Structure formats: C-alpha cells, structure tokens
Simulated scan of single mutants.
Amino acid sequence: MKLSEGVEQAIHSVAMLASLEANQVLSAAALAEFHGVSPSYLLKHLQALSRSGILGTVPGPKGGYHLAQTPEDISLLDVVLALEGPEPAFRCKEIRRNGPNPVPEGFFKAPCQINAAMLRAERSYRAELRKVTIAHLLAEVRQDDDGTLAARSCAFLDANVRITNQSRQH
C-alpha cells in the first residue's frame, strides 16, 4: 500500500497544531515553511482536514489553522481517511470473470478469495491506525527528545503563531 506524501505532511501539521493554545493559529504558509514542503500542496491537505472536522480555520489575513478536536481524539486513521477517502486500498474488479472460456455464473457466488484476504488486511491496518492518536505520537516524541526538537518548534512558533480573538473549544 502506498499513501500519498500528503498523509505525512498532514500528520506532521496536525501534530504541530496540537501545541497551540486556544487563541492561536498557524497559517498554511508557516506550516509549509516549517516542514519544507509546497504551500499549495499542503493547503489542499489542510482544506481536506478542515472539511473532515479535524482542523478549524480562522479566515482573513491574520487567520490560520488550529485543531478542531483534542489530540487525544484524532487518530492516524482519521487523518488518512480525511486525505485518502474511505475506500479500501484494494478494489476488486472481479477480473476472474473476464477472459476466454468463461465459467458459469454460479461459480462466482462466493466473494473472490483475493478480495476477502485484502479486506481482512485492510481491517487490520485500519485498526492499528485507529489505536494511535496524535497525543500518543507527541508523547513518544517528547520522551525521545533531548530538548532539541522542542527548542526548534518553540522558536518557530514564537515567530509565526497568530493570536486570534475567536474563542474555540475542542
């Protein structure tokens, strides 16, 4: 299975937004700069996260993005589904029915065994992603950080956070 680059960018962006206080936002441009990615490409993913209810937005020139849910309530699966959609990665086209010398339709009453195996794998994959929240990831990073990562993030946030007068709760 191959996920788009946007999934990595989205997870990192959500993790960074988790450190903001209730009256703070970050612009898409600032998030793109911090991660060294294309602003227009990241913006597309931030909009998908907003549509899914993971992120909230504050419009205007001093606006930006913030979490619309708590980090404990956002799983990796939530982010993946927001960007990639709910469809399974494997989509059976029933090609076993194609080709020369077709067999009777009665042979195909049971689901394709390949499709069944792939769907079992998809359920396992999704169950694992559902278990990992943004809060879990941040706790692991803090545990492994000697202060270097925190200092880098804090310095960037100090220079780029926007204060908004819109109150929000998550």
Rank of each mutant, 00 (worst) to 15 (best):
M1C: 06
M1D: 05
L3A: 07
G6N: 05
G6K: 03
V7L: 08
E8C: 05
Q9P: 00
A10S: 00
A10L: 00
S13P: 02
S13N: 09
S13F: 08
L17E: 05
L17Q: 05
A18G: 10
S19K: 11
L20D: 01
E21A: 13
V25D: 00
V25I: 02
L26N: 00
A28K: 02
A28S: 06
A30S: 09
A32D: 02
F34T: 03
H35C: 01
G36R: 07
P39K: 11
S40R: 10
S40F: 05
S40G: 06
Y41F: 14
L42N: 04
L42Y: 09
L43A: 06
L43G: 05
L46S: 02
Q47H: 11
Q47N: 12
R51T: 01
G53H: 10
G53M: 13
I54V: 14
G56D: 08
G56Y: 08
T57N: 03
T57D: 03
T57Q: 07
P59N: 00
K62S: 03
G63L: 02
Y65H: 09
Y65G: 02
Y65F: 15
L67Q: 11
L67C: 10
A68R: 10
Q69M: 15
T70A: 12
E72P: 13
E72S: 11
I74R: 04
L77P: 04
V79Y: 00
V80A: 03
E84G: 08
E84Q: 13
E84F: 10
E87T: 12
F90R: 02
I95N: 10
N98Q: 09
G99T: 08
P100L: 15
V103H: 13
V103P: 09
E105R: 08
G106Q: 14
F108H: 11
K109L: 11
A110Q: 14
C112E: 08
Q113N: 07
I114S: 05
N115C: 09
A116T: 12
A117E: 09
A117G: 06
M118R: 03
L119S: 06
R120K: 10
A121R: 04
E122M: 04
R123C: 00
S124C: 09
S124E: 13
S124F: 12
S124G: 08
Y125N: 01
E128N: 04
E128F: 04
L129Q: 01
K131H: 00
V132S: 03
T133Q: 06
I134W: 10
I134C: 08
A135F: 09
L138F: 12
L138P: 15
A139L: 14
R142F: 05
D144V: 14
D144M: 15
D146G: 15
L149F: 05
A150R: 07
A150V: 04
A150W: 04
R152K: 12
S153I: 11
A155T: 10
F156M: 08
D158K: 05
D158S: 07
Q166M: 07
S167H: 04
